[in-house]
Design a protein around this nucleic acid. Structure first.
Lengths: 362, 362
DNA sequence: TCCCTCAACTGAACCGGTTCAGTGGCGTGA
DNA sequence: TCACGCCACTGAACCGGTTCAGTTGAGGGA
């Protein structure tokens, strides 16, 4: 940090401008001079100050990511770490870094975006967990902050999207269960506020409709483990309880499976279960979870690249579609029970609720 | 971004300097003028440019965190998301942001630190996952980058440490098992390269010694799920196999428990298991995992504060000790088998290895 | 030989703040 | 009434780069 461009210029016997041209591979210096300057710079160990560079070129050389999730959920979700690692692989090739913001308190999210935009700390942001009529789209517009979104928002968005289809994976899960003879296939959805919560639900509905079945065994949860327990309890209380449940993520599938077992149901003997995400721990569950394997790392890599392209003006403006995730069959799914469905051990709804609660907070 | 300090100065009829003094609560302007300037600044919606501020005051207003882990392991470890959330709660109160780097490839870690230091992108870093004779200490010294470490390194370190004791938790786990009648208590350790891998092992050894027992049932793993399987397989092959295993983290405990069950052992009937970290999913395992509940969020909050204190010179220079984590007893631990230990179904080591491998990659 | 062109390079302005030396005006004490 | 000190504020330098208008000198064409 001690050595500046002036030191290099002086040592090489040229002006600051020449050093700048040489460093950035711009015309204006001969090859000989360029070589000499670079040589001197190397000898002096000159590292151009990002701060100065940023000030004069009006760039921050950083991308922003605001994560608005309960830290508890965050800690269990395998998505973000892998996603961030993907972003990083792209950024490592460019002179960019990632500024991460975790917003847990309500209202903190908007503040976080403003903080990143106001001081010019980042040149653009990646928008994850897109919501129904997401207010952040308007916010970013107001802040004039370039962005890419993960999946295309349902409201009008000027930002390019990098999408990974939910439909195929859920469809494959339903078809897998149908092939095993299941008919009463339920769905525990994530918060319908999120567009991926919605699209997964719609994919389940469509797959059921395609098989001529009613999609009536739905319970909405919130992507959290306790939510999964409550939704599972609700579905299992139904008179025609499902013999299989498609969950919108692994965490809910995990807690749902655990709850079903605690109610005396065998998985997959009495109830088949599928997850979504392929979190590493799901293969060590008992039984290991049938789930849908996404590729968050690739998603991160591509999203970061799309944002960088947008920043330097080389982005086509078109959305990018990533390969759809694939079904990973493990032992939590099996043939539908051949006889009449074993009822869940009788208890009043009140008791079940109590038990569900107890199960949630051991 | 369009409105600058000059615009404000002009609008308020004062010089740039006066605006700067007013904004930063420095003497040199009267209260009346200060009020007027702030009023004008507000009306114009002026947000001082972090870049310009950074250049003139030689600060980056950012802290760095380099995470060197396999993204797969990262995704399952609940530590980092909560830890980062903790950092964020501190930074939100100050005008700082967090720059996150994920280094997965070998050699990428050092490059990441250099990248952060060279351009002056951060003012300091938080060092996690401290290793035995950690080379990063010297590196940061060379780069003249202020830092705090999580736990005190075993080599000489000039940086303040924020420590959370491992010993008490492991000791509590061993004592809990002893009280249940266990005598052959094994330990599956994390990579001994990490100082927390070492200290957990040493705590187990000490607790065993205190009970007059030999600490010979040790297997080293690497904090990963497959590693946990392999180490568990090794311990279970021993002629005097353990009736209880203390794992150095939840992920290994999870995969170890799953492996033991696949070998026909009942948990906790034949084998009791304890984890470390209290990852959320562990309460939904079958059986739910007895584990040690740490508070990574608090750790992040305190570490960030310590680093900020160090940067503005108010740090005492002394290490901070956080409250030790506590044991959380769930159903994976139970009384020691009363009769002779049930042997693991006979098979050659070769077969066991094959099975372990198969178990790892379903 | 002279003029023109163009490549190579310089010097200075600029980005938007901070900071310091200097200046003007006011109040106070003798 | 005057000298002095101090408060409030200004103007300019500065941080370390980028960028642009100019300058210089070499080479080519007529």
């Amino acid at each position: 940090m001690a050595v500046t461009i002036s030191d290099v210029a002086h040592a090489a016997g040229v002006s600051k401008g020449a050093v700048s041209y040489a460093l950035n591979n711009q015309p204006g210096v001969s090859d000989a001079t360029r070589g000499r300057i670079l040589q001197v710079a190397k000898e002096l160990g000159w590292k151009p100050s990002l701060r100065a560079k940023g000030l004069s070129s009006a760039k921050a050389y950083a991308l922003g990511l605001v994560v608005a999730r309960d830290p508890k959920l965050l800690g269990t979700d395998p998505f973000f770490p892998a996603f961030i690692a993907g972003i990083e692989t792209t950024l490592a090739e460019h002179d960019y870094t990632l500024v991460l913001s975790v917003a847990t308190a309500p209202g903190a999210e908007e503040r976080a975006y403003r903080k990143l935009a106001d001081g010019g700390r980042v040149d653009g942001v990646i928008l994850t967990d897109v919501r129904h009529h997401d207010s952040r789209i308007g916010l970013l517009r107001e802040l004039k902050l370039p962005a890419v979104t993960l999946n295309r928002p349902d409201s009008d968005s000027p930002f390019p999207a990098v999408s990974m289809d939910d439909t195929d994976g859920i469809t494959a899960a339903v078809e897998h269960l149908l092939a095993l003879g299941h008919v009463r296939i339920g769905h525990v959805g994530g918060a319908q506020e999120y567009i991926h919560g919605r699209s997964r639900r719609r994919a389940w509905e469509a797959a059921m409709a395609a098989a001529g079945l009613a999609a009536d065994l739905f319970a909405e949860a919130d992507f959290t483990a306790p939510g999964g327990v409550a939704a599972t309890a609700e579905l299992l209380r139904r008179p025609d309880r499902p013999t299989a449940i498609v969950y919108a993520n692994d965490l809910m599938a995990t807690s749902g499976q655990s709850f079903a077992q605690s109610q005396g149901l065998s998985v997959p003997g009495d109830l088949s279960i599928t997850g979504y995400d392929n979190a590493e721990f799901t293969q060590y569950l008992n039984p290991p979870l049938t789930t849908i394997a996404t590729d968050p790392m690739r998603w991160g890599r591509v999203a970061a690249q799309a944002l960088l392209d947008q920043l330097n003006g080389t982005h086509s403006g078109e959305d990018t579609d990533l390969q759809a995730p694939s079904l990973l069959v493990r032992a939590s799914t099996g043939p539908a029970p051949s006889t009449t469905t074993k009822p869940v051990p009788q208890q009043s709804p009140k008791q079940a609720k109590k038990q569900a609660k107890k199960h949630t907070n051991p």
